[in-house]
Structure formats: C-alpha cells, structure tokens
Design a protein around this nucleic acid. Sequence first.
RNA 1: GCCCCCAUCGUCUAGAGGCCUAGGACGCCACCCUUUCAAGGUGGAGAUCAGGGGUUCGAAUCCCCUUGGGGGUACCA
Length: 495
Amino acid sequence: MTARVRIAPSPTGPLHIGTARTALYNYLYARHTGGTFILRLEDTDRVRSTVEFERDILEGLHWLGLDWDEGPEVAGEPARGPHAPYRQMERLPLYAAAAQRLLADDLAYPCYCTPEELDADRRAQEAAHEPPRYVGRCARLTPDERRAREAEGRRGALRFRVGEGVVAFDDVVRGRVEIDVANLGGDFVIVRADGNPLYHFTVVVDDAEMEMTDVIRGEDHLSNTPKHILLFRALGYGVPRFAHLPLILNPDRTKMSKRKSQTAIDDYIAQGFIKEALVNYLALLGWSTGTEEEILSLDELVDRFDLGAVHKGGAVFDRERLEWLNGQWIRRLSADDLIDRLRPFVEAELAAGRIERMPTDEELRALLPVIQERLPTLGAVGDLVGFLWVDDVAVDAATLVPKRWDAPTTRDGLTAARRTIEDAGEVSFEADELEPPLRALAEAHGWKAGDLFMAIRVAVTGRTATPPLFDTLVALGRERVLARLDRALGVLDGR
RNA sequence: GCCCCCAUCGUCUAGAGGCCUAGGACGCCACCCUUUCAAGGUGGAGAUCAGGGGUUCGAAUCCCCUUGGGGGUACCA
C-alpha cells in the first residue's frame, strides 16, 4: 500500500516554523516513498480560524515548494483529490454520522454537566491531590433522565467512553509506547454542546476517511495518541502508523513559541531568507543523513530522507546557523534568479525611503560579482550597497580621517585622489584603470594605499565597510564619485 | 500532582560494544589571502558522552536507578 500522509494545520495564525517542518517531513516521506501528500485544514476552532490565515499558510507552503497532491480549494485554487472537501468545517456531516454511530453503540453518551459543575469537580480533585478527570456523572443516565434534561432545554456535549486497559503502539521514531487508559482523564468530550466536533474526534474521522497510512506530527500529540487509537477502534477503522517528531525549541529549551522566538515563516521571508535555506535548515533540525553532507536541496532531501532516522530529542532553533545556510544558498543562485529575488527587497528599501531610486536589472547584474558573496540575507542588500541609490551620503569628519592619518593628510589625500580619478576616467571609468594610478599616487606621497583607499571609501559611501573600492567607484559613476569627493572635502573644511 | 517522552561540545549533529585519547558543521579565537567588509583556506579553544550503579575481556553505545529537561493532562488545536 502506498503511503498517504498529511499536514493538517489550523488556520488560527500565520504559518509557523513548526508546522512548516512537520509539513516538510510529511512531504519528504511521501515523495521518498512515492506516496501521496495531503493538506487538510482543521478549522473547527470557529473563533480563532480565519480565511486570511488559511491563505497565509497555503501560500507559505507553496513558497517553500511543498506542493500537495490533495487539498482544499482556496483563493481561487480548486479542491484536488477524491476526499473533498478538505476543510473540516465543510465535513460536519461526516463527524455527525460518526458521532451517531458511537451514540448508537453506546460508545459515547450525552453529558449535561455544566461548566460550573466540571470546574467544581476539578477543584475538588486538585484539593484532594488527585489527577483531574471527568467523574462520570452523566455516564449512566437512563433514557428517561436524558429526556428530562433535554426537556429542560439543556444541550448535551458528547463524551467518549474510554473504558479501561492499556493502549500500546509502535511509534516509528520512538518505538513502543504504552499508556494506561486510566491516565487519560476519564471520558472525554468529542462534540461540544453547541454541536461543534472537537479536534481529537475530527482528526480521527478524517485520518480514517482520507485513508491515511501514517500520521507524522509533533511530539506534543504523543500523549493524546491513545485517545485517537481508542476512537479509531470504536469507529471500526484501521489504526494508522504514528511517527512523533521532536519539538523545535526556544533557546531555553521550551516548545518554540511566538513569545520567545520568531515563529512565523512570513517574517523569515520578509527578512530575505530563501526557501532553499529554510527547507535545508528545517530538514536538518531533528534529522540528519548520517553523513557529513549538510547543504542539501529539496530533491536531495527527498532522495535521502528516512523517517526512522528522525531524532527523539527536541532541537533548539539556531538562527545563526540558518543565516549561514542562507548565505550558502544565495551564493549558489544564478544571476537571473538572484536579481529576481533581490528586486522586491530593493523595492522595499525604496518604499521605506532608505534609498531614492530603483536600480535597473543591469545595474544589479553588474553588482552581483561583489555582493553575492556578501549577502547573508536578501534583506541585507540595502545595508550593503544602498549608498549607490541615494543622492547624497552623510559623511562626518571623524570617520573620514583614516586611523593613521590626520585631517590635513586626509585633505591632501582626497584632493590628490580627486584629480587622479578625474584624469583616469577621461577615457573609460573602469576598475582596472582606477587602481594603478591611485596606488601610484599613494606611493608617491609615502601613504599606505589602504589609508588612501579608506579615505576615498568613506568619502563616497559614508561607511568604512563596503564592497571592494574600485568596483564601488565604477558602480557609482565618475560624476557622482567626483561630486561626493568634493562634498567630503567640504566636510573636512568644516563646511 | 499524575501520565508520557527525552538526555554527546554554547547550538545542530556523527556515533547503532572494540575503528572514539568522541568526528563534522554553526558560532567563537588566531593566522593566511586582502584596500575595508565579506567569501575562501589553515589552525585552535570547546563534550570526564547528565550522574551513579550494573552487564561485558571491553560501553557514548545494552539494563536499572537518580537527576535534569520537555510535552500532555480543555466543551483549544
């Protein structure tokens, strides 16, 4: 039987790093085994679910390149697959039918306890140092008693009878797990009094109806797995194989959260992390090839992925390592590709008012040899060469003077350099033609070339760290170089 | 509290009884390259394999206990 796996996000927030990683592992497993990757939206939390989050999640998964074989219709995209709809709120009749079956078999029963009663129970248990569990007040109501409550206008929630015994399963990553049903907290609610089915119930009905063979999800669901297994059995379904992935952690080793880490994929995209790096990084957070390979494309990951080799322990999200990988992948991009990906970030600089004009693709292309290896993220482009696209740069006298120089020397140096650059550029303004005469100039005056170059660098860019000077001068153009040198000279003279 | 899971450098990891005086990568430090910054190269610091008991001729690897950490325990997902 070929594998059928799914990612089942709740549209209650933007695409989360953890969801993306779980989706990736499901995708890798499906593609590696020639199986089917399914997307299902778990939107039964009516209050917190929104269509905006749905879109965000689907767009994010697409952006990462994790395309699904079956999934819901959304944003103009039609539903795909034989088990539509793939959005839980559109599958209500299925849950209702399953609930009916459990009720008919007396495997579930209506519970009329009020929130106040349940709360009181919990408090009493806490006071008695007992684990919280449903006391079973409504477990043995007679048909007459139920009718009486309904007649009072009370609407019952549906509770599933957990019974007794030990539930055991062989988790693909954790091995054998056994949990005594007595520790499940008593009969649990599967359908709310308002008729809305709950997660533990819908997930089972859907995984069964959609014929999932493997459930690959976060470790936070491990403890609840017995509830699911009980439900699969009660409903007469086969039980899928489970694989619980290690959690992605905050630096303090708690489950990764918005409060302590950046968790939205959107934020990483906005900062200029590229999908190749994110996919590569996430794949290696909790799994490794067992070799020393670490720069791996999505296809290579598909080729090497092994669910059984996934780690058991949680992994701290390390942004520095992600950044390094991002740089590695940026350097592997073709010129055209990099220009396409850079453009939105340059536009963002313009929109934010940090630059004053948009460079052409040809300008960007000419810059690539010197910026491609200097970009940790696409978002760093403005910081790196934004000085090229503003009318004037701010320079202050203090940084203008190189460490080993004083102001008069700097003035002499820049004045001489200005003349040399002006002369050199008569024919053509090329890096090869600028460097020799400026080096000769430094030598003639007994200056260290680096000092002269630094003075020029700060004069024309306003900063001490830039791409190589001569490439920078060429990118700036003769006129602007001369104008900025003049301005810098003015600053030196206190003007 | 109760239940479950986990445990190798700061971090991500290799390691499935002898190849380990524990390997790689990120980060950090130094040097090389070099006009600055990167990139790249070389080298270095960094883990008594959480601790304690076993098993074994031999344990990071197997077993037990302890400790630590995490997750779950909703009419959230």
